Computed example of a mutant assay.
Amino acid sequence: MTPLPNISPQSGSLLISEPFLQDENFVRSVVLLCENNEMGSFGLVLNKLSIFKLDELLDGCDLQDKEVYVGGPVEQNTLHFIYQGEQALEDSISLGNGLWWGGDFAELMEKYRQGKINSADFRFFIGYSGWDQGQLDEEVTGNTWIVCDNTHARNIFKAEPDDLWRVILKEMGGDFQVLANYPIDPRLN
């Protein structure tokens, strides 16, 4: 197989773990890179469900039974969110292709109560994935991550979490499509 081309990671990129990554926090994971600068990088794992629902984590939360994902191993006592579509919250940061990160949670709850937003367009995370200055670039150079732009972001809200890694690789085509079919443990193939 020919070497897999990688683009440089930037805010809004998707990081797809290579098939044989053994780090339990990132096995077959897809990470949305929210921030990448000279200070380091911040991202959210998109396909690892937690055991919690949002209303179990926040007293008085109006979003009943809303799934919460594990954004990464860092500071799992923090809550983050992304959403798709038009900018719904004033302080949200655009990640491109109609994908937004964060904003004022009180504004989100108020707009939800008023029926101005659809909760299906939002995804919530406890914790995050973080890299020190230069660390992510080293991991990308070492082929730990396949970097792609977020043109595949529509899958974040459509694909089942367990399928997201494979769905995005298949959509990328070529050698990536071959990687999507690698077994987790090739010895069992």
Results as ranks from 00 to 15, higher is better:
Phe105Ile: 07
Gly98Ile: 04
Trp131Asn: 09
Asn118Lys: 01
Tyr112His: 13
Gly85Tyr: 07
Asn77Cys: 11
Trp101Asn: 13
Gln76Arg: 14
Asp137Asn: 15
Asp132Gly: 15
Trp131Pro: 06
Leu95Arg: 07
Gly96Gln: 04
Glu75Lys: 13
Trp131Val: 11
Asp91Asn: 13
Glu107Tyr: 00
Ile117Trp: 00
Gly85His: 11
Ile146Pro: 06
Arg113Ala: 15
Glu139Gln: 13
Glu139Met: 05
Val70Ser: 06
Thr144Leu: 04
Val74Glu: 02
Leu95Pro: 00
Asp104Trp: 05
Gly115Trp: 10
Glu138Ala: 15
Asp91Thr: 03
Gly72Val: 10
Leu108Ala: 01
Lys116Asn: 14
Ser129Trp: 03
Thr141Asp: 05
Val70Gln: 08
Leu89Asp: 02
Glu86Gln: 12
Lys111Ile: 03
Phe125Asn: 13
Leu89Cys: 02
Trp145Ile: 05
Tyr128Cys: 15
Gln135Arg: 02
Asp104Ile: 11
Asn77Ser: 13
Thr144Lys: 07
Trp131Glu: 08
Gln84Phe: 00
Glu86Thr: 10
Arg123Pro: 05
Gln84Asn: 01
Val147Pro: 06
Phe124Ser: 03
Thr78Ile: 02
Arg123Ala: 14
Asn97Glu: 12
Glu86His: 09
Gln114His: 09
Val140Lys: 10
Val70His: 04
Lys111Asp: 12
Gln114Leu: 15
Thr78Ser: 06
Thr144Ile: 07
Thr78Gly: 03
Lys111Asn: 09
Pro73Tyr: 07
Ile82Leu: 11
Ile146Val: 11
Met109Asp: 01
Ala106Thr: 04
Gly115Pro: 09
Phe124Lys: 04
Asp137Cys: 08
Leu108His: 02
Gln114Asn: 14
Glu86Tyr: 08
Lys111Gly: 05
Gly72Leu: 03
Gln87Lys: 13
Glu110Arg: 05
Ser94Arg: 00
Arg123Asn: 12
Ser129Cys: 03
Gly71Phe: 11
Ile82Met: 11
Leu89Phe: 14
Gln135His: 05
Gly103Lys: 01
Leu89Lys: 00
Glu75Asn: 14
Gln76Gly: 02
Val70Phe: 03
Asp91Gly: 05
Leu99Tyr: 11
Ile146His: 10
Trp101Met: 15
Gly102Pro: 14
Gly71Lys: 06
Ala88Val: 00
Ser94Val: 06
Gln133Cys: 15
His80Phe: 12
Glu138Pro: 02
Thr144Arg: 04
Gly85Ala: 09
Ser119Ala: 14
Glu86Ile: 06
Asp137Lys: 08
Glu107Gln: 04
Arg113Gly: 14
Gly134Asn: 15
Phe81Thr: 08
Ala120Ile: 08
Phe122Ser: 01
Gly85Cys: 06
Gln87Asp: 01
Thr144Asp: 08
Gly98His: 02
Asn143Pro: 03
Tyr112Gln: 04
Glu75Ala: 13
Leu95Val: 09
Ile126Asp: 07
Ile82Arg: 07
Asp91Ser: 11
Gln135Trp: 01
Leu79Gln: 05
Gly130Asp: 03
Glu86Ala: 12
Ala88Glu: 07
Tyr112Asp: 02
Asp137Pro: 05
Glu90Phe: 12
Val147Tyr: 03
Phe124Ile: 08
Arg113Ser: 15
Leu108Asn: 00
Thr78Asn: 04
Gly102Arg: 10
Gly127Leu: 13
Ser94Tyr: 07
Leu136Thr: 08
Thr141Trp: 02
Trp101Ile: 12
Trp100Ala: 14
